[in-house]
Design a protein around this nucleic acid. Sequence first.
DNA 1: CTGTATCCTCTAAGATACTG
DNA 2: CAGTATCTTAGAGGATACAG
Lengths: 135, 135
Amino acid sequence: MTLTADQKRQAAQTHYAEGLGLCPARQLLEAISSKWVTLVMLDLADGALRHSELRRRIPGASQKMLTSTLRSLERDGLVTRLLTLSVPVRTDYELTPLGHSLLGVIHGMKEWADDNMDQVEEARGDYDSRRSSAG
Amino acid sequence: MTLTADQKRQAAQTHYAEGLGLCPARQLLEAISSKWVTLVMLDLADGALRHSELRRRIPGASQKMLTSTLRSLERDGLVTRLLTLSVPVRTDYELTPLGHSLLGVIHGMKEWADDNMDQVEEARGDYDSRRSSAG
DNA sequence: CTGTATCCTCTAAGATACTG
DNA sequence: CAGTATCTTAGAGGATACAG
């Protein structure tokens, strides 16, 4: 069978997008852009914390989201999980060396944001007002 | 009226999450984690490009996504759009100084990813095999 | 205390078709 | 060539209830 131009283009797009998913930088971006990842890592920067302590520090995260965030961090080798089988149970989370090194990148982003996001805000305001008025 | 403990907790979570949305670092993360943003910015690093040229370089992005990515970059003051009313029309996109400075952060992420994502990959493999086997 | 299972909502991303 | 409008879908995030 022959493909139409549209079908060929779409196949090329799909192929490219699949390759993109394997790109290291893309994977990193997807890992750290999930909503609570950076907050958890920043809280763990100074040492291990219990699950309940993390909940206290990040009240916006539901229990489910906190657990799933920690699971993916553990899976990625960025955080270790230490389970103590007492009554009641106790779990401690701690950054791995790899996690600590990633913290450097996160701080870089945070710094740029603190220095420049007000400019971005301003640009957004300008753009939006140009849109709504006589444009 | 009185609130249950659950209702109070949830109100606190909502309030916290709203504040989080205003955090500069969070906003930055949301801006650059959208799928095509970094690719577009990297392609514009060496100079202005036309819309059609960007499409050629990033075949995975549909026309709609490329346009909407460029719009949000323009709105954020990271990219300028120059429209030339010839026949056919021509538009050129170029990084602003602010956009160039953000490129530094992006390169930092890319570098960390190139250096360390193989370790992450390995950790994922280990974690998954531990899950599937005797655990 | 910590973690799982279920159900629900909202939106980013994509497919498609059309206009100046 | 560049852009817009509409429809659909997959998945992240959240609410709730339950379990070891």
